[in-house]
Computed example of a mutant assay.
Amino acid sequence: MYSDPSVKPDPDARGIRLAVGATTKTWVLSKRIDGKVRSVTLGSWPDLPTVYAARDVAVEKMAAVTTRTDAASTGIHTLNDALESHIKRSKASDRTKDEYRAQVRNNMADLFAMKIEDITLDHLEEVVLGKHGIATQKHLAQIIRTSFKRAAAVRRCFNVADDLKVDTKSYQPDNSVNFDADERWPALDMIEAKKQQNRIIGAAFELMLFTGLRAGNVITLRWDDIDFKARKLRVSRLKNGRVGMFPLADRVVALLEALPKHSEWVFPQHDTEKHIFHPDRLKFGDNILRPHDCRRLFTTAARRADLPAYVIDQLRGDVEKGVQGIYDQGSASHRHANAIAKQTEVECGALPSLNVVQIGGRR
Results as ranks from 00 to 15, higher is better:
A309F: 03
L307K: 06
D293N: 11
E257H: 11
H270E: 00
R281H: 09
L256I: 08
A305T: 03
L238R: 14
R237Y: 06
G325P: 15
A254F: 02
H275Y: 08
R237A: 04
T300I: 07
R303Y: 04
R251T: 09
Y327N: 10
G241D: 05
A302T: 15
G317M: 13
V323I: 04
R295G: 07
D271F: 00
D318R: 03
I326V: 02
E273A: 05
K274V: 12
G325M: 10
I276H: 06
G244E: 08
L248E: 12
G317Q: 13
L255S: 13
G322R: 05
D313R: 05
I276E: 11
V252P: 10
P260K: 03
V253A: 06
I326W: 08
H262I: 01
K283M: 11
K274R: 02
Y310Q: 09
E320Q: 15
A301W: 06
R290S: 04
D306Q: 06
D306S: 12
L248P: 12
R251F: 08
A254T: 15
L259V: 11
I276D: 09
E264W: 02
R316A: 02
L248C: 09
R296H: 13
D271N: 14
A258Y: 12
D286G: 12
G330S: 12
N287G: 01
P291T: 01
H275L: 09
D271S: 15
D271W: 11
H262P: 00
E257R: 13
D286I: 10
S333I: 08
F277G: 15
D271V: 00
E320F: 14
V252L: 05
A302M: 06
D250P: 01
A301G: 12
P279L: 00
R251C: 10
R290I: 15
P279I: 01
D250R: 03
R237W: 10
K283F: 00
R304T: 04
W265F: 04
K239H: 12
V319A: 06
K239P: 11
F284C: 02
P308G: 00
K283V: 04
L259C: 10
T272W: 02
G325V: 14
G322W: 09
A332T: 04
V319D: 09
E257A: 08
L238V: 09
L248Q: 12
R290V: 15
L297E: 03
P279S: 00
R237C: 00
L307E: 05
G322P: 05
A332G: 15
F298L: 12
N240W: 08
N240H: 05
F298P: 03
R281Y: 02
D280L: 15
G244S: 11
I288Q: 14
D306Y: 13
N287H: 14
Q269E: 14
G241C: 04
K321S: 14
S331P: 07
F246P: 10
D313M: 11
R304S: 07
A309Y: 00
D318A: 08
L255I: 10
R290N: 13
I312C: 05
H292D: 07
P247E: 09
H278F: 15
A302Y: 08
P247Y: 07
A305Q: 00
Q329E: 13
F246V: 06
D293G: 04
D286C: 02
L297Q: 02
E257P: 09
